[in-house]
Every structure is written in C-alpha cells, then in structure tokens.
Design a protein around this nucleic acid. Structure first.
Lengths: 287, 287
DNA sequence: GTTCCGCATGAATCGATAG
DNA sequence: ACTATCGATTCATGCGGAA
C-alpha cells in the first residue's frame, strides 16, 4: 500500500474548494464554526445569516463529492433569546433545494458533559451529525463499525469451549474467511444512530471539540483505504489525522494560519506524503 | 391534599380541545401518531400532509395552555424514499409562526430500538422531544428531576413495584423537607437534555407508546401538585396515570373507544376523582 | 427463592413483485 | 411512472417455565 497523501491548504474554503476536482471526494466530515462563536474566524457568522453564508460552501461540496460519497455535517443551533434558533432546520431545507439528499441524522451524545444548568434549561449534551448524500446509492461499509453485542451474547459465549473461541479468533486474524461473518454474528451487532463519545476536554493547545473517535467512525463507515476524505474547516487537523491513520488520503483546508500551523505540525509526525498548498491569494474581507 | 382529578374524554381532540378553558393547562405532554403509522387510528396521516393536519391542534393547545405552561411534543420523522422526511422541521417552523417559542429539543435515546438491517442506514434509536412555550417565563422545577451523581441514566431504578413507586412519590409529595434537600445538594446533580429510557415493548396488555418514566420526568420538571396536565392523544393513558400518581390533575382525550376503555380501566385502580366526558358527537370522517 | 434459558414482540426499512 | 403489499432482516427486553 502506498503512503496515504495529505494535502494541507491554507486559505478560505469558499475560494479554495474551487481548486478541487469535481466528483473526486469520497467523504466530507466537518464541523464548521457555529453561529456567533469564533468571532475572529470567518467574521463570526450571525445566526440570521448562517444559511446564506453556508450555502455557497455546500454547493462546492456537492460538486467535489463523488456520486457515491457522503457529507457528514456536525452542527448545533445556538440559543437566541431563550429559543433554539432555527438556522439548522432552515439549512437542511435549503440544502435539499440545492440538490442534497438528507439521508440521516445521527446524534452525538457527549457522555462526559458535566451536568449543569441555566435558569430555563439543562446542559446541552448532544449535537447533530447530519448525513447528506448526492444520490441514493452511496458507499457504506457497515461491518467496519460493528460493536459488541448486549448481554445475551455473553451467555451464548459461555457455551463455546475455550478452544472453539481460540479457533474462531485465529480465523478472524487470518484474513477474510467466510466464517468471519458467522463469528461476527455471534459476538457483534450493528450499531444504531446514536453515538456515545466523550468530548476531548484536556486539549488546550487547539480548539478541537471533536474527539478523534468521531471522524474515525464515519471514515470507517463510509470509506475504504485509498479513498479521499475532505475537511474544509480543518481546525487543528483532527479529521485529516484520523484519515491518515486509517490509510485514507485527506485534504484539509484551514483559514487561520495559527490553526494551519498546528495541523501541519501534527501531520508531520505521521507517515504521510505531505503536500502543502499555499497559493498566495488576497484575503476576502467581505465576510 | 384533595384527590387529584382525572378527566377522560372520548372523541377527536380536534373538536374536544375546544371544550377546554383558555389558559388553564400547565403542561401538555403528548405523542401524536407519526406519519403513515397507525393507519387504522387516525387515517394514517401522510407525511406531506402532516403539518397541515397538526397545526389546528397546536393552535388549540396554544390557547388552552397557561402563559407559564409548557408543551412537550414527542415526534419523529419517517424515512421516505431513502431520506428523512422534513415534516418535523417544517412543523417547528410553522408552529413558531403560530406563536409558539421553540425553547428546547430533548433527545430520547432508546437503547432497545426496533431491530432491522438495511444497506444504507442503521437502526433509529432516538426520538425528538420538542419543548414549546407560550412565553419566555415558564415554570420549571429543576430540583425535582435531579439525579444521583455519576451516570444518571444507569442509576435509574427500573423495577420498582407499584407500591414502591407510590411510596416514593408520597415522599417527594410531602414537600422538600430540609433533610431531603440537604441530601440532594450533596449527592445529586442536574441532568442534561438526553434521556436514556427503554421502550416498553412486550408489555402487559396495553401498548404503551412510551415508558411511564418519560411523561413522569416532564411532569416533575414542569408542574407541581395540583397543576393540570393534558394529553390530547391519550392512548392507553400512560400520561394521565403518571400525572395522577404525582398528585397532578389530568385531562386525557382519546379517539379510539378501545384505547379509551383501556385507559379508563387503568385509571379506575388509581385514587383519582374520575370524571368521564362522553358527549355524543358525529365522528368526523374528513380526516 | 434463585438463576438460567427460550421465546415473542415491537412508532422499522428496503427491495421486489404486482396491479 | 406511481402506489400497494409482502417477505427478510435484526436485537434489547420482559415474561414464563425449567433446573
């Protein structure tokens, strides 16, 4: 297997995405700046302007994605004036008009979020992971994310002798035997659409709220080795690093030089074929 | 404390809600039929017509709710043609135009979701619990749903007998003694907005749409003893029973005579002041 | 009384087949 | 082309009978 490639792009994804070939990306996983947060990035998008701001970007993502590809969008609405703002709902409707299929909504349950409260609401412990597709036939490799079964499997397991277990395990390790699925069916089950993952709490160096587990799960689910993964809001590079570790090629775009540097340093320690794209350009001040 | 009252109404909530006084209800908790399901009950509302079907009902709920009251709507979108249908998103937007505030979206995580295996999606293990309010100042009693520190979901006591439940309720109902609140402050924490509760599947003789825990949680959170709880889609009466056990008055409306009978029999065994409203009416076939 | 095992049962979804 | 019905698939849970 050749070393997977990582392309790092410094710049605004609204321009930089145009340099990516059409129908070339297998998976987009990204967590764009939330409304009103990261005021120094992208000018701090106001909730009322969020849809308008994002649509040109999702249009480019629709172009660069392969017909069999998937777009995973991690997004959360902001509470404005005591209400959940509706820009996420409106964005879904607008993206469908743009041509996207809204296939699924996964829930990321942040299990380590410490319980807390406001006068009128509890701690927000979940975020949306919206799955969009270009066509109804998209690649999905469900076996790659199977999980151990519930309790009844344990009792089943007890009936297998130790030698049986060892034999079965060695079969799995030996490669793709037909018996794998039989063994898997005894021990493993397909997951559901609720993901229980802790947030990364102690990483002060970068603002990655994303645990690496999260992009990893979707990369395993929607791509195979050699595929291309894109993150237009790379941040400190969590998604591209996960992609590389899993043998996928990756493209990361980041506007802020500080974050870009952070990502570049993380990537340098990986066995990746690094390609930096630093085309000079005039920063767009209009946003 | 006077015995809490239960009013059972047999009929279509689109008509029956009109008989309820304005600004008189403290909490509406309900789970209306989902699109295309229960075709024999409500004529199986088609996804495309769902918003149009529900808006007259939510208009009545807005009228009968006190300004300090809350409306909890349990709803889920259906998969149509490989996509999540958008009627829930459109309903939220439409209800806001109607005057509702979309305060919060709780997630109900069902560990035991319906099984199945498909090439393009996993099992759906969550449902929306949408919180709507009439004004920004609504009643919320956060201390009533505090949970033991640690994983509060796991610590929920599931197998309490009826008498145990009643005993616990009476403890809480006796008011917050100083000892209790002290104990609470040391050992308890506020929950978050993700609720982990199993569905009651192969249960007794009634097909409860949700576990009694669910309405119970919201009743404790948004009402106090003597308040009025309304469920316009009563089904087998899970919500009204929970309300009664907690010392709240309740109104339940049910269209189907079989379900109404089921609810009436459940209610009869409770220490409730039962009032049946069976005004004769011409069934509306236009649904 | 325990623990263990077997079994039925769900707010489901897809793909194929038939009208 | 569009709708209606049917079979196959899948797993956590609670109940009941057995050891």
């Amino acid at each position: 297997m050749p070393r997977p490639e990582i392309r790092l792009v410094l710049g605004d994804c609204r321009q930089r995405l145009k340099e990516i070939e059409s129908d070339s990306v297998d998976l987009v996983v990204t967590s764009p700046p939330y409304a009103d947060s990261r005021a120094n990035t992208y000018g701090g998008i106001r909730p009322d302007e969020y849809v308008e701001w994002f649509l040109p970007i999702s249009a480019e993502l629709l172009r660069v994605l392969k017909p069999t590809g998937t777009f995973i969008l991690n997004i959360k609405e902001k509470v404005v004036n005591g209400e959940r703002h509706t820009y996420v709902l409106e964005l879904i409707l607008a993206m469908r008009r743009q041509g996207w299929l809204w296939t699924e909504e996964f829930i990321w349950h942040k299990k380590n979020s410490y319980p807390g409260k406001w006068p009128n609401r509890f701690r927000d412990a979940w975020e949306r992971l919206l799955q969009f597709n270009k066509s109804r036939k998209f690649n999905m490799y469900q076996e790659a994310v199977m999980v151990p079964m519930g309790d009844w499997a344990k009792s089943r397991l007890k009936k297998l002798s130790e030698t049986d277990k060892i034999r079965d395990v060695s079969k799995v390790g030996s490669g793709f035997g037909k018996n794998i699925s039989n063994w898997l069916r005894r021990e493993m089950a397909y997951p559901d659409n609720v993901l229980h993952m802790a947030t990364e709490c102690s990483n002060k160096n970068h603002s990655a709220v994303f645990p690496e587990e999260l992009p990893e799960w979707f990369i395993k689910l929607f791509t195979v080795e050699g595929d291309w993964v894109l993150d237009p809001f790379m941040g400190s590079g969590t998604t591209v690093c996960a992609a590389n570790r899993l043998g996928r090629n990756a493209i990361g775009i980041e506007l802020l030089p500080e974050h870009y540097e952070l990502a570049r340093r993380r990537v340098e320690s990986l066995p990746a074929l690094l390609l930096e794209v630093k085309t000079e350009y005039a920063p767009d001040q209009s946003c």
